[in-house]
């Protein structure tokens, strides 16, 4: 459920430090249900940790996505505009949301065990 090679945040995002891709976790996508719309940030935007960068919308809920790290947006997953369900179907793969050039904040991310603990508490 929570791959060891990824890092996580309390806001239920995952970060792949190798590919620099960011998405929402299995827990988040299950809580949302069928994703119907994703609002993506603009490429080139500079973000600080905690900035609101977009929105993931399902039939019954809406969730803000917050920047898990600081840096610059270098790519967004435009395939999600036509197929937002990729977030449900392939959460850690084709369901990635954006790619960042990370400048700061890596050290505060959680590992898989740490994230698992947070979920158990919720």
């Amino acid at each position: 459920m929570y791959p060891e090679n990824l890092k996580y945040t309390k806001e239920h995002e995952w970060v792949d430090l190798e590919t620099k891709k960011i998405g929402i976790t299995q827990y988040a996508q299950e809580a949302l249900g069928d994703v119907v719309f994703v609002e993506l940030p603009e490429v080139g935007t500079h973000l600080e940790v905690g900035d609101s960068i977009g929105v993931v919308e399902s039939v019954k809920a809406v969730s803000d996505i917050y920047a898990p790290v600081s840096g610059k947006v270098i790519a967004v997953n435009e395939e999600l505009l036509d197929n937002p369900e990729l977030i449900n179907q392939d959460t850690y793969g084709k369901g990635w949301i954006l790619q960042m050039e990370i400048t700061e904040g890596e050290e505060d991310l959680l590992d898989a065990q740490g994230y698992q603990k947070i979920i158990e508490e919720e």
Partner: peptide
């Protein structure tokens, strides 16, 4: 498109 609306998004 009800996720725009008050009963889901509340203050947003």
């Amino acid at each position: 498109l009800q996720a725009r609306e008050q009963h889901i998004r509340r203050e947003k």
